[in-house]
Nucleic acid binder design. Structure first.
Length: 288
DNA sequence: CAACCGTGGAA
DNA sequence: TTTCCAAGGTT
């Protein structure tokens, strides 16, 4: 079962893979690291233009390390989860100071960098340096969950069973290509909402499809409403700082959110997170 | 470990 | 219009 998944998926990938800039041979480890962090919870189409601009502006870790952290946040634009921009800037400074300007190649060293968890460390070690690691992102978990476990959606948190399965599937040679191939299958065919099973290279073996594509039982899906949350408020406040050329008076922040208590809480949160700072004259700006 | 952390496009 | 969720990580 395990072995028979590889060939059809790798053959499918050879024909259907997208030509993404961070997958090209000329992509640097730094470019790959930047792409992986930008892609956390963010669709490819929105990452593409920002990644391209970043690579032109900051082609090396040293280049990013040389500017203020606020510049990273400013050029993050509206990608979302802006602390990732701060993490990337901190990565650049750590790589410059502690790794001679080279992105570390080992999983363990990568894992020590801010904002790099299990998936991103495995992805960079694998895709940038050719190392063999199990890639367990949301796509892979969904594909393997369906194909092998026969369930529509994977568990909320990664289980040891999922990890063992992914590791058991690692080929002796070509682990990076295998990892990206399964991810791509999940992104283009074995999608969360309307999977295109008719186009799937492993449809004849997929446990979920063979079982008649049973709907996810268990608890109902989570509904994370966004309107009115602190997150939305933080986003509004940060947008003001990002779009301003210099420091802004507090009144400029006050006008974008009506609820005073929530606004103050959100602003304090931004300051605590290092995404904004107050100057001695009481004005606010991105971190300098 | 559940909650939190943005944003926008598709269904 | 509302809901879902997209190459996660941290606390």
């Amino acid at each position: 079962m395990a072995i028979s998944l590889r060939e059809p998926i790798l053959d499918w990938y050879a024909e259907h893979n997208r030509d993404l800039p961070w997958r090209r041979p000329e992509a640097t480890p730094w470019g790959i690291l930047v792409s992986e962090i930008m892609l956390q919870q963010t669709p490819v189409v929105r990452v593409l233009p920002v990644w391209t601009e970043w690579m032109e502006r900051w082609p090396t870790p040293e280049a990013l390390a040389a500017v203020a952290p606020g510049e990273a946040v400013r050029h993050w634009g509206r990608l979302g989860y802006p602390r990732r921009a701060l993490n990337l800037h901190a990565c650049a400074r750590a790589i410059t100071a502690d790794h001679r300007g080279r992105v570390p190649s080992s999983y363990d060293e990568l894992r020590t960098l801010p904002g790099i968890g299990d998936y991103t460390a495995a992805a960079v070690a694998s895709f940038a340096y050719g190392h063999s690691h199990a890639i367990l992102d949301t796509n892979v978990r969904r594909v393997l969950g369906r194909a092998v476990r026969g369930e529509e959606y994977p568990p909320k948190a990664t289980t040891s069973g999922e990890r063992r399965l992914a590791e058991s599937l690692l080929p002796a040679v070509g682990a990076p290509r295998w990892g990206v191939a399964v991810m791509e299958l999940g992104a283009l065919v074995c999608t969360a909402r309307a999977p295109r099973c008719d186009d799937c290279p492993i449809m004849s073996q997929c446990a979920w499809r063979l079982a008649g594509r049973p709907a996810h039982d268990g608890p109902v899906r989570r509904g994370q409403t966004y309107a009115g949350t602190d997150r939305q408020c933080r986003g509004r406040l940060l947008a003001v700082l990002r779009d301003a050329h210099g420091p802004v008076p507090k009144e400029a922040l006050d006008v974008v959110w009506a609820d005073h208590v929530q606004r103050e809480r959100a602003l304090d949160g931004l300051l605590d997170d290092g995404l904004a700072e107050v100057l001695t004259d009481g004005t606010y700006r991105l971190p300098g």
